[in-house]
Design a protein around this nucleic acid. Sequence first.
DNA 1: TTTTTGCCTTGATACATGTCATAGTATCCC
DNA 2: GGGATACTATGACATGTATCAAGGCAAAAA
Lengths: 235, 235
Amino acid sequence: MSIPNNPACQNCKDRFTSIFCKADHNNLEQIDEAKVCSAYKKGQVIFHEGAYPFGVFCINDGKIKLSHSGDDGREQIVRLVKAGDIMGYKALLSNERYTATATALEDSSICFIPKDLFLNILQKDASLSFEMMRILSSELRKAELKITHLAQKPVRERLAETLLFIRETYGLEEDGSTLNVRLSREEIANLVGTATESAIRLLSEFKKDGMIELDGKRIRLLDVPEIVRTANLHD
Amino acid sequence: MSIPNNPACQNCKDRFTSIFCKADHNNLEQIDEAKVCSAYKKGQVIFHEGAYPFGVFCINDGKIKLSHSGDDGREQIVRLVKAGDIMGYKALLSNERYTATATALEDSSICFIPKDLFLNILQKDASLSFEMMRILSSELRKAELKITHLAQKPVRERLAETLLFIRETYGLEEDGSTLNVRLSREEIANLVGTATESAIRLLSEFKKDGMIELDGKRIRLLDVPEIVRTANLHD
DNA sequence: TTTTTGCCTTGATACATGTCATAGTATCCC
DNA sequence: GGGATACTATGACATGTATCAAGGCAAAAA
């Protein structure tokens, strides 16, 4: 399943940007001792919708998608996770089973922090729990915005918005224009909330209009202002 | 604007079910002293999207809708609030402006708790902040489910689901079948995420199929199992 | 009462988007 | 390398839904 390799949290390159940068030094050491770090291959599932949570996951390196699977089996991607982010906290906090499945989008290194320890520290460390609330609020804000856009915006606008969202989340490669992640057309569609064919067709249109360039799963954003205009963002 | 009347939190009929039932008695007294309770008329706006938050609101009595207004001005209702619930915490916690507008669905009595006090107590009171995290997690879970359904389910199923959601939130009247809230067709549509005419048409169909009965804004759920089946719920 | 106003309802129509089918293309793996 | 598998692409088509338009009904105002 996963190859253990345990870098210290002190060495974790994202410890300054992650939620744990807010944590008390003391607590951080406890986490460091108890955590288990594992390597996951691209496509591997970290946790499954419906399973019971035993802790939270902290991304050391890599990219993860969190997705619901609808009745008909089609997946809806609800979040993209990057290094420094944590995941699995929602189920833990509401004491329910996972409502989403976490799948590695590329080879990733992920730390696991046991439930009891995490909840325990959360009780003691006010600034950590405040940071947790901030994260939850921010996720909720994004989710509500997405609800509004799904209900009101056409697919074309949502696709443009999604491209910008991917850029915001994973950034660009060294060339300054290529999205720094490889997603299948189906995954893009499941992020937008549309059929794969529709996503493909619209991506082709964007390309024809000179907004983007396509090279397999490589997507280059050529004309960001025009993409912003297409996304019709002003709220 | 609003008629002040200040019942003690001790008398608040929902203090046992609200978030504050978790709070320390000491802190509850502080809140009781600082809070300001006001009456709002049906249709009145409690806070506006884009405004800066100065505190949280706790519903003493009444019903509120929280809605985003999309680019084209159409509203999307993102949450229904009832007595005992709090609102406005998201903006406060993430230190941003309100992303939604709160409007009274009926005459309501609402307490206002100043920002500083609330955040202060949240820092000190671990069990209150844990409850806050639980609420946020639960809201986030609901929002993500709604995203999946908006993306994947047809309007007919979503409407059935919405009827069940309203029942869950506001309950039924004494007759045991009438939804205990009066919403316009437009509001129902904005909850479902569809056009008003579509909502009306489908409600008529539901009526013709014997699932519901319509009497103005009164909606009676006659055949709940069939509504559940129509909503196609099994996730 | 009559008028006004705001909602509700229904029909006709157009369009966006999903679905199905087919073929081309890359990718993986033995 | 070659065959299998998965992904991408495009066309044809069906249909769910939004939009536009017009009329009905009921509550509120004059």
